Amino acid sequence: MSSAPMPIDGLIDKLGIEIQCYLEERAITAPLLIGIRSGGVWIAERLQQKLALEEPLGMLDISFYRDDFSRIGLHPRVQPSSLPVHCEDRHIILVDDVIMSGRTIRAALNEIFDYGRPASVTLVCLYDIGRRELPIQPDIVGQHLSLEPEQQIKLTGPDPLGLEILSKAS
């Protein structure tokens, strides 16, 4: 059972404004924007346009970096990661759709560090569900959500981009 997809354009606008303020406060110019497949890439594409960043967008598929890879096996739609420029000494904005346990972000950080040592990583998430298993917190978040234990969140898209709250109960 699921709800109808809710539009999220307003949250992406909010993230864009908060990222711009964050960058100005820290005097960061020309950050490298990296999205985590697939929802994080969809959001990062929109943020790339809003922020008018000139660098090409980076994309990570963290499938091989997951700590549960041996239990879940290879997902049939694994795509290659693409970091079009060097990460070494770069300020990175890492974008994901939902942060829950923190494990996806841990995997993404491991992959980024395989490409080089960034100057900083700013974590941006559209939604924070707050069911952490690792001590990882977003720097910028669109919205905090409280879900019932039987509920899950799913980003739909890429066009239109929306949010569904799924319930395991039928």
Rank of each mutant, 00 (worst) to 15 (best):
residue 25 E to R: 12
residue 150 E to D: 07
residue 129 I to P: 02
residue 38 S to C: 15
residue 25 E to V: 03
residue 169 A to S: 11
residue 151 Q to N: 02
residue 69 F to V: 05
residue 67 D to C: 15
residue 67 D to P: 00
residue 69 F to E: 06
residue 98 V to F: 00
residue 134 L to C: 03
residue 80 P to F: 08
residue 137 Q to K: 13
residue 127 Y to V: 04
residue 61 D to Q: 06
residue 18 E to V: 01
residue 25 E to P: 05
residue 92 I to W: 06
residue 74 L to T: 10
residue 87 C to P: 01
residue 105 I to M: 12
residue 53 L to N: 05
residue 141 V to W: 02
residue 75 H to F: 00
residue 116 G to S: 06
residue 138 P to D: 11
residue 44 A to N: 06
residue 101 S to E: 11
residue 86 H to R: 14
residue 64 F to W: 06
residue 88 E to S: 05
residue 144 H to G: 13
residue 29 T to Q: 15
residue 145 L to A: 00
residue 111 E to M: 13
residue 26 R to V: 05
residue 55 E to Y: 03
residue 78 V to E: 08
residue 53 L to D: 10
residue 49 Q to F: 14
residue 140 I to E: 14
residue 4 A to M: 11
residue 24 E to W: 12
residue 28 I to N: 13
residue 75 H to T: 07
residue 116 G to A: 10
residue 68 D to C: 00
residue 122 T to E: 14
residue 60 L to T: 01
residue 109 L to P: 10
residue 125 C to H: 00
residue 61 D to W: 02
residue 68 D to V: 00
residue 18 E to S: 11
residue 3 S to L: 08
residue 145 L to G: 06
residue 15 L to V: 04
residue 135 P to K: 03
residue 153 I to L: 11
residue 59 M to I: 12
residue 159 D to N: 04
residue 137 Q to P: 05
residue 29 T to V: 14
residue 46 R to S: 05
residue 53 L to V: 04
residue 126 L to H: 00
residue 127 Y to Q: 06
residue 104 T to Q: 03
